[in-house]
Design a protein around this nucleic acid. Structure first.
Lengths: 224, 224
DNA sequence: TGAGCTATTTTTGTATTCATAATTCATTTT
DNA sequence: AAAATGAATTATGAATACAAAAATAGCTCA
């Protein structure tokens, strides 16, 4: 099967750089040498630089005039800010989802939830995370607001690397699962206000976990 | 006074195109011919194209592969979506502002408020809008969350053209002023939750005004 | 030997050029 | 005459070339 390559070079490049940052092959604070990446991707500098512009706007890299691009460092402050904003957005997604969600979607989300619970009980963290993400995505989709979804997604990119490297402490994990139980109840009852509130709180808990995991650059630039 | 030209060509170009869209010299849906703008700005295509990438990410223009850039049209749907998201963000700004705002800032905001009220009583809509914007900005600043501010600002760009062209009906104007009175009270009482709720509602009212003003492209693409 | 300056190299920012896809216009055919 | 096809033109996407700024290295001189 031939993949239809609708994507432009700069879009492709942006995606790859994003992945590299999230996977840790490009470390926070380090310079991104255009030439090297061009060779690596087999493209010229023009589309690569366009990609960097997009990523800069996303907040993945910072562009210093005449001094090139650097991978944005996540300070504790920034992470806190981002989680707060994402909390507000997820809260809205919950409210809107309760208004627009279909029976079918609720059923699907419930199914995902039970699947997730199974992984939780077995202590399988990776699959748990996977399902968790899919549930949140499903709620976001049910909100029927693409602007919201894109805004959220853009912020989410920035902190993916933290999420990936997060390892759960049991206590927080239990709390997260409890949040999810309550979320399902709200969805069934179409209680948007409460679902919104839970989602906001839910993100606040996640922040604590992320902060504890120690992947954050403290505000004073540590080397690298 | 010499303006410090820290800005790059692409940043300058992006700003100018933004302004052109907001002022109406580039109309929704029309193609943006690269060559023409290059001549107009006196720059080459490279920085201009970089500018378009940024604007595309902001949601000001849409980039169709091999078919160039078009000014994004504001459908009713999009406007509604955007106002919802901005409402959530302003709501958060209110909550955070009540936590972080200084006495001095509250006093400044109050001063702006009274200034605004004076214009309201005199029916001076332009200066009223100006002060109104500054009050919201001040609250946003008091929230001490740059991520929030930038996210909000990016969405705000998209709908500036609607705001500019909005003419107030007395009824809505009265409502807006009432909202503002309540906002000041909340700020003084540091009642973040209520301030947040008011701001969310406040934006909902603005949507009604914008929708009524008829500057929106309906979802079915009208010519142009 | 070390500090400061200059020259060289490297890298970034911008312009130009080349290739390819889309659009337009003319011609042909039904 | 209208529709369809194909050639010419134009615009976009990407690569290369050039200019300017920053980083580096080497050199001089105290």
């Amino acid at each position: 099967m031939i993949k239809i390559q609708q994507n432009t070079l700069y879009g492709e490049a942006a995606a790859r750089i994003r992945d590299m940052i999230n996977e840790g092959s490009l470390l926070p604070g380090v310079r991104i040498p255009e030439k090297q990446l061009c060779e690596q991707f087999g493209i010229s500098r023009t589309p690569l630089r366009e990609a960097l512009k997009v990523l800069a706007f996303e907040g993945m890299v910072e562009l210093l005039p005449n001094r090139g691009a650097r991978v944005m460092r996540l300070t504790r402050q920034m992470l806190e800010e981002t989680y707060n904003v994402m909390g507000a957005l997820e809260g809205l997604s919950g409210e809107l989802a309760c208004r627009h969600v279909t029976e079918q979607e609720v059923a699907d989300i419930q199914a995902l939830h039970y699947q997730m619970m199974a992984h939780y009980k077995r202590g399988e963290i990776r699959p748990y995370f996977e399902l968790n993400q899919r549930i949140h995505d499903a709620i976001m989709l049910a909100a029927r607001n693409d602007t919201l979804r894109e805004t959220y997604s853009s912020l989410n990119y920035r902190i993916q690397r933290v999420r990936y490297s997060t390892h759960m402490i049991d206590e927080y994990w239990d709390q997260a699962v409890a949040d999810h139980e309550a979320m399902i109840e709200c969805l069934l009852a179409r209680d948007g206000e409460r679902l919104g509130a839970i989602l906001r709180e839910h993100l606040r808990h996640k922040l604590v976990v992320a902060a504890a995991s120690g992947v954050i650059d403290e505000d004073q630039p540590t080397a690298v």
